[in-house]
């Protein structure tokens, strides 16, 4: 969510209390993090490489798994830019203008953040399914939304839609609109104001939001599982491929695919840490 301050002044424990309590607390924090986060993470790679590098490579290069990687990347490539654009527009609207229904709109935008992706999947099924609201119309026009790329993209859009706005909005609110208004008074066009004044101010938050959005888009499971139809090598994203391999009794393959996703997640985290240092 929010970031630690860049190098806050080093706090020392209150003097005169001995070092026992800090040491105990640090030990407890390290031990619990080891058990809760580090070991599970290490376990993924342990299982992925248990049979050696060659087996790992074979599992990753298996055509269906490769296709799943590609599909997952493709979905993220569509979803992230769309949601970045939406996040900027929505944040601008909510931060810079007052209008009736503003609170309701904010709540609506936040819904995907607080509901189970399963519900998102069910909603889309009831809307675009052959027996859903738009189903007959889609069938008449021969449009395939569900069980194909559009359905996967739409559900992922839904699930990841609030991420960018949630990061950008607080910043825009905190910064206020004085600079932008000054620029407008000096005769700058709307686009110029956005590019020269707003964007430089929000770019890190924007990038951070985009990273969170990508991580979520790449890992989406529940919602997509309902609308994908799990056609091997066609509509299986990487998280679904993990489940499929697991059920194929190919546990090493499942962990190999999982380690790929974990690597993506770790990269996103590194990017985030780097961003925070530059902020």
């Amino acid at each position: 969510m929010s970031s630690p301050l860049p190098l806050s002044p080093t706090h020392t424990a209150a003097p005169g209390q001995g070092r026992l309590i800090p040491r105990l607390l640090i030990a407890a924090a390290l031990l619990s993090s080891l058990l809760l986060v580090v070991i599970p993470l290490a376990y993924i790679f342990y299982r992925a490489f248990a049979a050696g590098w060659a087996a790992f490579a074979a599992n990753i290069l298996e055509p269906n798994t490769l296709h799943a990687v590609w599909l997952t990347v493709l979905v993220a490539l569509v979803v992230v830019p769309v949601n970045v654009a939406f996040g900027i527009a929505a944040a601008w609207l909510v931060a810079r203008f007052r209008f009736p229904g503003r609170g309701a709109l904010l709540t609506l935008i936040e819904i995907p953040f607080s509901i189970s992706p399963i519900i998102a999947g069910i909603c889309y099924l009831l809307l675009y399914g052959r027996q859903g609201l738009l189903g007959p119309w889609l069938a008449a026009h021969d449009l395939q939304i569900l069980f194909a790329l559009p359905g996967i993209v739409l559900v992922t859009l839904f699930v990841t839609s609030p991420f960018v706005m949630r990061e950008v909005l607080p910043l825009m609110q905190a910064q206020g609109s004085d600079q932008e208004e000054a620029a407008v008074t000096l005769g700058a066009s709307g686009w110029q104001v956005f590019r020269r004044v707003t964007l430089p101010n929000i770019r890190w938050a924007l990038l951070y939001g985009a990273i969170l959005c990508s991580a979520r888009a790449v890992g989406e499971f529940g919602g997509v599982s309902i609308v994908s139809g799990s056609i091997r090598g066609q509509t299986n994203t990487l998280p679904l491929q993990i489940e499929l391999l697991f059920n194929d009794l190919n546990i090493a393959g499942a962990f190999a695919a999982a380690s790929t996703l974990t690597l993506i997640a770790l990269l996103a985290l590194v990017a985030k840490v780097v961003l925070e240092r530059r902020r």
């Binding site: 675009y128 399914g129 027996q131 859903g132 139809g229 799990s230 056609i231 090598g233 059920n247």
Partner: peptide, 20 residues
């Protein structure tokens, strides 16, 4: 030949909903 595997009833429902 593309394959899709899951519980039989789940698959039937997916086809009804448009799985081609």
């Amino acid at each position: 030949i593309e394959q899709s595997h899951a519980g039989s009833s789940k698959q039937a429902r997916a086809i009804l909903e448009g799985l081609p």
